[in-house]
Amino acid sequence: MIFEAIQLLSQQLNDYLKIRFRLTEDIVFISPIKDPSKSFPNRVGITIVGVERETGAGVSFQRRVVSESTSAQSVPAWQISLNVLISVIFQEKQYEESLRLFSAVIAFIQKNNMVRSANEDISFSLEVMNMTIHELSNLWSICGENYYPSVVCKIRLLTVDAGEIVDLSYLISKPEQTTDLR
């Protein structure tokens, strides 16, 4: 689910930027922050910088009917959020161009606070996280890179469910009653 969500965000942002700037090549890539200019120069990079478990919904063990005579219980699904860094990585000489692209990235996020796949099997909310200069400085320092125009967003409400059965039970039913009307 994590890869699919990041890939969906990457595809939709890429399509938006290609249309807006009339680009013929992909410009958005899922990439690490380390040495981004060497691996993906003049690109928009999407990087996971954190995962958080959402506990507000509580925990509920899920029981479902498997057949007429059995039911199964599985481990509760998790709701998680991903913190992603969206960076516009251009060479220093193209800083103005990177700011044009960065403005478009911000517009995309503002317009698409809910991201859905075409068949709607994946959907999540996308929101900008407010970070202080100190937090941003720490993030980029950990990555060992200079700062690039970037925004940290939270992808909310992804469900992680391995679907593994932890208990299989037989259903108890009433004995069938037949009426003999002779």
Rank of each mutant, 00 (worst) to 15 (best):
R116S: 13
K111N: 09
M129L: 13
S125A: 13
W140S: 00
G58W: 04
S74H: 11
R64E: 14
E127G: 10
V66L: 14
L82M: 10
E145F: 03
S74E: 13
P76K: 12
C153M: 08
V66S: 08
S141D: 07
P76W: 08
E92R: 14
F102M: 11
E145S: 14
F90E: 13
Y147C: 00
V151Q: 00
I109A: 07
V115N: 08
N146T: 15
A57P: 02
L126Y: 04
S60P: 05
T132C: 04
V115R: 04
S87T: 10
S74M: 15
S87K: 11
N130T: 14
V128A: 04
S98W: 05
M129W: 01
V115T: 06
S125R: 14
V151P: 04
G58E: 07
T70R: 15
S67W: 07
S141C: 03
S141P: 02
L82K: 12
W140D: 00
N146R: 15
S74W: 03
L101N: 07
L126K: 01
I89P: 01
Y95R: 12
E127C: 04
L139C: 03
F124V: 05
I155L: 10
F108H: 05
Y95Q: 05
V49M: 05
G50W: 03
P76Q: 08
K111E: 09
P149K: 00
V51L: 10
F61P: 07
P149G: 02
C153D: 02
A107Q: 15
F90Y: 15
D121W: 00
Y95I: 09
S74K: 15
A104E: 15
I142M: 04
E97H: 09
E120F: 10
S125L: 04
G144H: 09
G144M: 01
S123Q: 11
E135N: 04
E54G: 06
Q79A: 08
V75K: 11
N146L: 12
D121T: 12
N83M: 09
E54D: 11
T55A: 07
N112Q: 13
S60R: 09
N146S: 14
W140L: 05
M131Y: 07
S98C: 06
R63Q: 14
A72M: 10
F102Q: 07
M114T: 14
E68G: 05
A77R: 15
G58N: 05
F102I: 01
I155G: 03
S98I: 08
S123T: 00
V84P: 02
L99N: 14
F61R: 08
L126H: 02
V115G: 06
G56F: 03
R64H: 11
E52Q: 10
A107D: 15
V75S: 10
G56W: 02
E52W: 04
C153Y: 00
S123H: 06
V65A: 09
V59D: 07
R53N: 00
Q91L: 09
I86K: 02
V88E: 11
V65P: 01
S81W: 02
A77K: 15
